[in-house]
C-alpha cells in the first residue's frame, strides 16, 4: 500500500515536471495540474495511510488524523482556483498574440516594438 501510494506520487510528479518543461502553455498547465494532484496525495499520506478509519475521534477505536484532510481540502480548492486563473490568462495570451508559446520572443520587451503599440501604456 505504502509503496503503491509513494510510486503514484512519484509518477505524477515526474509527469508534471516533464510537462512543465514544455514550451507551450497547454502542456505547462497540464503539468501544473499533475503536480497539484501529486502534492494532494502526498499531503493526504502525511497523516499516515490507514484504510477504513474515520477522521472523527470517538467513532472508531483507531481514528485517522483529520488535519491533513482539512489541509488537502484547502490545497485542492486553491490549486483549482489557480488553475482556472492561469487557463484564462493563457487563453488571453493566445488570443492576443496568436500563438501559445511560453518563452518570450527575442528581446521582446527590451527593444522598441516595430508595430502594434500597447494600448495600456
Amino acid at each position: 500500500m505504502e509503496i503503491f501510494v509513494a510510486a503514484t506520487v512519484g509518477l505524477l510528479t515526474a509527469v508534471g515536471v516533464y510537462l512543465m518543461l514544455r514550451l507551450r502553455s497547454f502542456p505547462v498547465i497540464l503539468g501544473l495540474t499533475f503536480l497539484s494532484y501529486a502534492v494532494n496525495l502526498f499531503i493526504f499520506a502525511a497523516g499516515r495511510i490507514r484504510t477504513a478509519a474515520a477522521p472523527i475521534v470517538g467513532t472508531t477505536d483507531t481514528p485517522t488524523d483529520p488535519l491533513p484532510q482539512a489541509l488537502v481540502l484547502t490545497a485542492i480548492v486553491i490549486s483549482f482556483g489557480m488553475t482556472a486563473v492561469i487557463v484564462m490568462m493563457a487563453l488571453g495570451s493566445y488570443l492576443e498574440l496568436g500563438h501559445d508559446r511560453v518563452d518570450p520572443d527575442q528581446g521582446e520587451d527590451d527593444t522598441p516594438a516595430p508595430a502594434g503599440k500597447e494600448t495600456g501604456a
Binding site: M20, S25, V28, I29, L32, L35, S36, A38, V39, I78, S79, M82, T83, V85, I86, M89, A90, G92, S93, E96, L97, V102, P104, E108, D109, G116, E118, T119, G120
Partner: peptide, 21 residues
C-alpha cells in the same frame, strides 16, 4: 495590459504555482 504583458503574466503565474506546490 495586452499581448506581451499577459504572456509575462502567464510565466509569472506558472512559476508561482510551481512554488506553491
Amino acid at each position: 495590459g495586452t499581448g506581451p504583458r499577459i504572456r509575462a503574466g502567464v510565466q509569472y503565474i506558472a512559476v508561482n504555482l510551481l512554488g506553491s506546490t
